[in-house]
């Protein structure tokens, strides 16, 4: 089964090598030149609109005349259309309650877990699957898509779609959500390199959870170590080349080829 990661949005911001690697902290003044620059993501004007100030601990990035701060720590905010990994934590006859590593628990309704057939007129004995929450159990790991999410209501999920549904086998690990774009790399360069070198299937999701399945446990272990190394060194430059060297060296040391 070939898994292709669908997550490509946001990655050019983090991966851009031209990004200045200047670290900023909350409250640090990014610029006092308010004529030429506009506050972008993760920034704010001060009260008199004479300075632009950072809101996060992160990396300063200038895109045209927007000043952005790319955060290094933070939480995941669900967006409609995101493919994420959810864990079923509770269920009742009406819905499942899922942990999606966000501030709210998400809900998965049974009608979003069964593919609806087109109604066949004239075939009265057509058996339609009963809508109930017996499909999944508490503790199951699902790959889901976010149907709707906003600031006030609980996010709603669906398992209908390509690659979605329950996963059998494999390992799920979790890293900081803001570092996911770095793991994917520019146009997926990092993830392609990891796949080729470790011969594992990887499914990277926006909420910081990563599903891994390989033929060999030694490769899986190496890959997990590599992912944690990427997380730790996400703010440094030349990461893809360094990781390639790291994996090749480790393969020799561990005698796996």
């Amino acid at each position: 089964m070939e898994e292709e990661e669908q997550v490509t949005q946001e990655n050019d911001e983090f991966e851009d090598e031209e990004t200045s690697r200047e670290l900023v902290v909350p409250g640090e003044v990014l610029t006092e030149d308010v004529q030429d620059f506009i506050p972008g993501r993760g920034t704010i004007f001060n009260k008199d609109k004479t300075k632009i100030i950072s809101l996060h601990i992160g990396l300063k990035n200038i895109n045209k005349n927007y000043i952005n701060v790319i955060p290094l720590r933070g939480i995941y905010t669900p967006q409609p259309g995101d493919k994420i990994i959810a864990i079923v934590v509770d269920k009742n006859p009406v819905k499942y309650k899922c942990d999606i590593n966000s501030k709210d628990f998400a809900q998965l309704k049974p009608r979003n877990t069964v593919k609806r057939m087109k109604s066949r007129i004239g075939k009265r004995n057509y058996e339609r699957e009963e809508l109930s929450t017996e499909r999944f159990d508490i503790g199951d790991i699902l790959i889901v898509k976010v149907l709707s999410a906003d600031r006030l209501n609980k996010p709603e999920l669906t398992t209908i779609g390509k690659y979605l549904g329950k996963k059998n086998g494999g390992i799920v690990i979790s890293i900081d959500p803001p570092k996911i774009p770095r793991l994917i790399g520019r146009n997926g360069s990092m993830i392609k390199m990891l796949k080729n070198l470790t011969k594992c299937n990887i499914f990277v999701t926006q909420n910081g959870r990563i599903w891994i399945k390989g033929d060999n446990i030694a490769y899986e272990r190496l890959l997990i170590e590599a992912i944690y190394k990427i997380e730790r060194e996400a703010h440094t430059t030349g990461l893809t080349d360094r990781m390639q060297l790291f994996i090749e060296n480790e393969k020799k040391n561990r005698g796996i080829e």
Partner: peptide, 11 residues
């Protein structure tokens, strides 16, 4: 708070 990545106006 800053280490947790919570948006803050300043320290």
């Amino acid at each position: 708070l800053a280490d947790a990545g919570i948006p803050m106006k300043s320290l």
